[in-house]
Design a protein around this nucleic acid. Sequence first.
DNA 1: CTATTGATGGTC
DNA 2: ACCATCAATAGG
Length: 185
Amino acid sequence: MPLPREFYARKTIVVAKDLLGRVLVHVDFGVRRAGRIVETEAYVGPHDLACHASKGRTMRTDVMFGHGGHAYVYLIYGMYDCFNVVTEREGHAAAVLVRAISPIENCLGATDGPGKLCRALRITRARNRLDLTDPSSPLTIEEGTPVSPRRVARGPRIGVDYAGDWAHEELRFWIRDDPHVSRRR
DNA sequence: CTATTGATGGTC
DNA sequence: ACCATCAATAGG
């Protein structure tokens, strides 16, 4: 069963940590593809200069302003999709970027990066706005095995140097020593 | 090992 | 013009 709405309707940092060890599942034309989440980043709200919602409510960011538990999938650099889960309550625009998974089922190629994991699970913008808590959804997150807090490492987010002071905030979380994390530290 | 660059297209 | 990436390349 997918994780329930209440899982996502919490503080974004809490959700980002709690997503580690959970299982991202994509049913792609009847083929089940899945991986265990090993790295995430929190984008905590419109006041966070690295968060897309800081640009305001637009066609692209609209889904982030809705309630938690929906998919936010966008195209970056013209060739890669990035998968996020919307967090918190209606009106609080925030999300968690899933940056890496360890392959479980039918993954195509490498999974150690946000663009790579979408390619491996075949997640595209066609999945934007899907409800991750709906058992009939092709895109869900299953309970998996939560990670003990002592196994969780944290550091600055990747690729957000433009975000001023927010670039230094330690809002990236990963499972310590996991070989599928996108960068070591 | 680090640093740099090109690919590629939606967004605003 | 910018960009929450990646792969290939050049250099030490």
